[in-house]
């Protein structure tokens, strides 16, 4: 367990709501409420969930863009809350991110070379020529020609821009890249290229990914392990292929049922969830999924299930699988 690159333990992030500058907050949104996972070196962990489930907040915590309310994030064995200023800078160099929208993630007024070089200049003392050399390497790494460095982002298509964003994320001996819906904004015919590129880069560089998406098929394709999130909590974690073959948690089952067929005659177990994700401001008592769950038992509305090992490497938070 300690050989992992990133270890997140019982991470919580609560946001006060309704308070003004002087007034007291009226409530608390538990955006992330006790999440634990690990990512090994060179591994991809997929994080799936619907909007508002807390996956974006989780990514912000991992990126040290937000401070957790409770819990720890350990990177290479050290808690990032205890890092000195200089070590935190080093952490920021090693953990980078690729966002969903490649049109918003590249500054329109900077040349591509400067965009990619920005993190390098912030973290390493290299000469101008060395920086240029690194930029050339990176551009080739993501399948673009070196003379792209002189151009502005608007001269590139969406897929090429996403390649540039990936090159930037890899510019500083990066160990972990948070991929926040990296292909959702791209044209269908371009997505496969980016997914393949990410897989190739992982094999070559041994970099780890935290792959966040709502498209189960894409997540399961890219990641070795997949974690399913609902209302700030992980409900199921396991090997991607096993998870796809036999989802355990009713919410995971519903997600799979809802993901669209890949051809017209594919038959699916139809689990149509009633209602919508409840507000995180007042989550239901007990298991937060029980109001929508087709298998809910009396116990589910009283006692919160814990994330327990159901089979080796497979953890589920559901009373259906916990010995009573």
């Amino acid at each position: 367990m300690d050989s992992s690159l990133l270890a997140v333990r019982d991470l919580r992030k609560h946001f006060p709501v309704g308070g003004s500058l002087f007034g007291k907050a009226r409530g608390v949104v538990k955006a992330v409420d006790g999440v634990s996972f690990t990512i090994g070196s060179g591994e991809t962990l997929g994080l799936v969930g619907e909007s508002g489930c807390g996956k974006t907040t989780t990514s912000k915590l991992v990126l040290a863009a937000e401070e957790p309310t409770a819990g720890t994030i350990e990177f290479e064995g050290r808690n990032i809350a205890d890092l000195s200023r200089a070590d935190l800078q080093d952490y920021r160099a090693k953990v980078q991110v690729v966002f969903q929208d490649p049109y918003s993630s590249l500054s329109p007024r900077m040349r591509v070379g400067d965009i990619i070089a920005e993190p390098i200049k912030a973290h390493e003392a290299l000469s101008a020529a060395e920086v240029r050399g690194r930029v050339t390497e990176l551009l080739e790494l993501v399948g673009l020609r070196p003379d792209a460095a002189r151009l502005f982002p608007h001269e590139f298509s969406g897929g090429q821009r996403q390649r540039l964003a990936i090159a930037r994320a890899l510019s500083t001996r990066t160990r972990l890249v948070v991929l926040d819906e990296p292909v959702s904004a791209l044209d269908v015919s371009i997505r496969a290229h980016i997914i393949t590129l990410l897989e190739e880069l992982q094999q070559r560089l041994g970099v780890s990914y935290l792959f966040i998406a709502h498209d189960l098929a894409a997540v399961a394709h890219v990641s070795q392990r997949t974690a399913v999130m609902y209302l700030g909590k992980l409900v199921e974690v396991g090997d991607s292929l096993e998870l796809c073959a036999g989802p355990l948690h009713p919410y995971t089952k519903a997600l799979f049922a809802a993901s669209l067929p890949s051809h017209p005659d594919e038959s699916r177990e139809e689990i149509v969830l009633s209602g919508e994700v409840p507000s995180a401001l007042s989550p239901p008592r007990g298991c937060s999924f029980h109001p929508r769950c087709p298998f809910a038992m009396p116990r589910c509305s009283e006692q919160e299930p814990r994330l327990l090992e159901a089979s080796p490497g497979r953890r589920v938070a559901c009373h259906l699988y916990s010995a009573s």
Binding site: L88, Q96, F99, E118, H123, T172
Partner: peptide, 9 residues
């Protein structure tokens, strides 16, 4: 792009 810059320190 501003968030990216902040995240890269």
């Amino acid at each position: 792009f501003v968030k990216l810059a902040e995240i890269s320190g």
